[in-house]
């Protein structure tokens, strides 16, 4: 940022370069300190993963294993058929993200920019569906999907509902589409664009960061979903990665030395995706979009 005080003779600390450097140092300090707090659990996770099993349960705990070993990774990897589980999870996640992203963005756009009788009521209804806790709709939903639709042991209960918009993401998109200046829509409409055309040609390209954010959330939601696969999948060749992890958590005993390395393996795709999606957060599509 610039300073207005260019006329006065400036002391060293007012000089731009010095202030910028100072600011950077403060920025880094502010970033690094909480980072350490956030990283400690993951350090422990890594340390557990690379310990030989007999070191995991030692007391006092060992922070850095003196003989790091890949034994846990190998044993954990051979414990259940992970490649199959990955394929299944990717399949479910891909469809869920596509379905939910498309439908939620469109519904969100409609709630933000169009009007119709009962809109407020419908929007309240949409939000209300978020407010009913899953524990009590679990049984009726289960009956619906397994008895009425006969979807037991298929991926449909995990995928199909996503194609009909998810309330949180509708709300998310609505809030963002509402902050886009209306003149953009107006001028497009005057050019003869239909509201759906405005949605796809103007609103969506303008919402790069939020589309990236929503995709990431949807991905994580599907990827990490436990309850859905837990109650609807019944043959282990259809299992997902999170179900695979439950093999290490028992009623009496958690195989921490296998759970930790496999949790790391399970989170890798999400991390990679986050890295890839990053550039959409910084690109500033909106800024360029606003200039036409």
């Amino acid at each position: 940022m610039t300073s207005l005080a260019t006329y006065k003779p400036v002391s060293w600390y007012q000089r731009k370069s010095v202030r910028q450097t100072a600011r950077k140092i403060i920025d880094y300090l502010l970033l690094i300190l909480p980072s350490i707090l956030f990283l400690i659990p993951f350090f422990w996770m890594l340390s557990t993963a690379f310990k030989p099993p007999k070191m995991v349960y030692l007391d006092p705990p060992v922070w850095i294993p003196n003989t790091p070993s890949l034994q846990n990774f190998i044993e954990g990897w051979n414990y259940v058929p992970w490649p199959k589980f990955y394929r299944n999870t990717i399949l479910i996640t891909l469809f869920s993200v596509i379905g939910s992203l498309g439908s939620s963005a469109m519904v969100g756009f409609a709630f933000a920019s169009l009007n119709g009788r009962g809109k407020n009521f419908l929007f309240t209804l949409l939000l209300a569906t978020m407010m009913v806790p899953g524990a009590v709709t679990l049984i009726p939903t289960f009956i619906l999907f397994t008895k009425v639709f006969k979807w037991m042991d298929t991926y449909f209960p995990l995928i199909v509902p996503h194609f009909f918009a998810s309330p949180f993401f509708v709300f998310l998109f609505r809030q963002f589409f509402r902050s886009i200046p209306r003149d953009l829509y107006d001028s497009a409409e005057i050019d003869g664009c239909s509201p759906f055309g405005i949605f796809t040609r103007i609103a969506v390209p303008l919402s790069g960061p939020i589309v990236a954010t929503a995709s990431l959330f949807l991905f994580l939601g599907s990827w990490n979903d436990l309850m859905g696969p837990l109650i609807y999948l019944a043959s282990s060749e259809k299992f997902t990665v999170t179900l695979g992890l439950t093999a290490f958590t028992g009623l009496y005993f958690a195989r921490l030395h296998l759970l930790m390395p496999m949790s790391i393996v399970a989170m890798l795709p999400s991390l990679v995706l986050f890295f890839l999606a990053q550039k959409y957060f910084v690109r500033g599509i909106v800024t360029t979009g606003l200039k036409f």
Partner: peptide
């Protein structure tokens, strides 16, 4: 258009 575009959610609901 409003009803048309929110129809996926209505059907899903």
């Amino acid at each position: 258009w409003f009803y048309l575009m929110i129809s996926p959610w209505i059907v899903g609901f």
